[in-house]
Write a protein that binds this DNA or RNA. Structure first.
Lengths: 108, 108
DNA sequence: TGTATAAGTAAACTATAGTTGACCTTTAAT
DNA sequence: ATTAAAGGTCAACTATAGTTTACTTATACA
């Protein structure tokens, strides 16, 4: 019997994207970029992740675009799967220094 | 003209709740408790907040119970309003120490 | 202990997030 | 230049989050 042609699909083509600066203030877009970076770093396609988590590709894409009109549950599922998590920060509004260290960029 | 009877409703009755330990791992319930703590600390009622943000009281209650079947957008709105924010953590799976410092509690 | 206000629940309805399947575009390897 | 797989969009449909209104339960206090 002849050899099966070696599956060429073994070497996946998933382009890595850069991890954003996680020390910067939270925004949904920064979260989205972190998710994409994690996913591509793990050489997983959108379909890989959506199948693993039972969410649709369009929904995953919404999340990876920073769209906040998605279920919180789905965001958490994706983050957990890719090894991302939140920590909680209480803006204690102590030390109101006027130095522009805190940017007022939009978070959504 | 006689004095109007001083509105007795000036002293609001909003019971403060304790702020959870924000250094512990993220969970939606911990987030929920932080939200409630922030709100009550600011002497705001559920109706105050839901009106200010144009979300319904039942939805706010879902959020304050840690229900993750809510829109990400609504969670972010509430957090912003109360002065809570996320920071992003990438579980780099370096230093896999086997000491039970990392609890495996559920996060939803 | 009655009263006022906050918290919480429930049901019927509305709005919208999510899915499916098809399709187009992009990219990288041969 | 073709091809194969990934990324991304769209439209029709389904599932479900969110709203409204009303009601119940708790809590403080006069």
């Amino acid at each position: 019997m002849s050899e099966l042609p070696a599956k060429k699909t073994l070497g996946r083509v998933v382009k890595r994207t850069e991890m954003p600066d996680l020390s910067k203030p939270f925004s949904s877009v920064r979260l989205a970029k972190a998710i994409t970076s994690k996913r591509t770093g793990m050489k997983l396609t959108l379909v890989d992740v959506s199948q693993a988590l039972n969410i649709s590709k369009p929904t995953l894409i919404k999340i990876e675009k920073g769209d906040v009109n998605v279920q919180f549950f789905n965001v958490l599922k994706v983050m957990e799967y890719l090894g991302l998590s939140f920590s909680l920060v209480s803006d204690d509004e102590s030390h109101h220094n006027n130095k522009d260290e805190v940017s007022d960029e939009q978070w959504y």
